[in-house]
């Protein structure tokens, strides 16, 4: 579904991504693990076209997307849920969803506000509330719901658990599993290994802009040395 190879990016003169390669298969949840500043967010932004990739290939759903505009990439069915949530605080919940709305994608059940409210019940109770007057957890749900309104085939989910209460993170994990069962592919970035292991099929570890390890989730849980070296929880 998504295949990244040789991806490099610069910020000013600093080399922040170096030869990054990863794959996400159809219906798969892959987690990108690494500490802060390791390059997780930048990888997602580079895939999405928000940071111009300096080199490398990004193939998505059979098309080469490296170097294209973010809105074109989004229209191909790639959804992006940013780290800092970035909901539209002046707009109501329904209006936030409206901004994300795109035509249905062939082969996927189209998302409607009603279906999203079933997935995130707390949002349904506050349809007309301005985004700025929601709690952090509710905002995080809304960002995901807003991206789903574009009927993506794959979503990039950037640190969804950051700053959330443990009970909310547990609910987030349930929602992600529900999305996976709908056939959606997900590339997740995380620091919280406990959370990642609840939802992911495979893991890729990034550090200082380079991929250091890739494998299945059970493999990672068995590889104490790898966790010790890169994740040190």
């Amino acid at each position: 579904m998504l295949s990244v190879a040789g991806l490099s990016a610069y910020y000013g003169r600093a080399h922040i991504l170096d030869d990054v390669a990863l794959d996400v298969g159809a219906g798969e949840v892959v987690v990108l693990l690494g500490r802060n500043g390791a390059g997780k967010s930048t990888t997602m932004k580079a895939i999405m076209g928000l940071v111009p990739p300096a080199a490398g290939r990004v193939r998505f759903a059979g098309a080469e997307i490296a170097g294209r505009e973010p809105f074109e990439i989004a229209r191909l069915g790639l959804g992006y849920v940013p780290e800092e949530r970035r909901i539209f605080t002046e707009l109501s919940v329904l209006e936030n969803l409206e901004v994300g709305r795109r035509p249905p994608t062939a082969g996927l059940r189209p998302w409607t506000p009603e279906r999203l409210f079933a997935l995130f019940p707390s949002l349904g109770a506050m349809q007309d509330r301005p985004g700025g007057r929601m709690s952090g957890g509710e905002q995080q749900m809304l960002t995901i719901a807003r991206t789903l309104m574009g009927n993506p085939r794959l979503i990039l989910l950037d640190e969804p658990s950051e700053g959330l209460a443990p009970v909310v993170i547990e609910r987030m994990a349930e929602a992600i599993r529900a999305l996976k069962s709908e056939g959606l592919s997900i590339l997740l970035s995380e620091q919280n290994l406990h959370f990642a292991q609840l939802v992911s099929d495979r893991a890729t570890i990034i550090e200082k802009g380079r991929i250091r390890w890739s494998g299945s989730m059970p493999q990672l849980l068995a590889a104490d040395d790898v966790r010790e070296q890169y994740l040190s929880v």
């Binding site: 809105f71 989004a74 229209r75």
Partner: peptide, 21 residues
């Protein structure tokens, strides 16, 4: 109008949601 109001706050995010901002 909704898109314009959203773009007022965060034009990049509007683009990432598939709108030609």
């Amino acid at each position: 109008g909704t898109l314009v109001r959203a773009a007022t706050q965060d034009r990049e995010m509007v683009g990432a949601l598939g709108v030609n901002q």
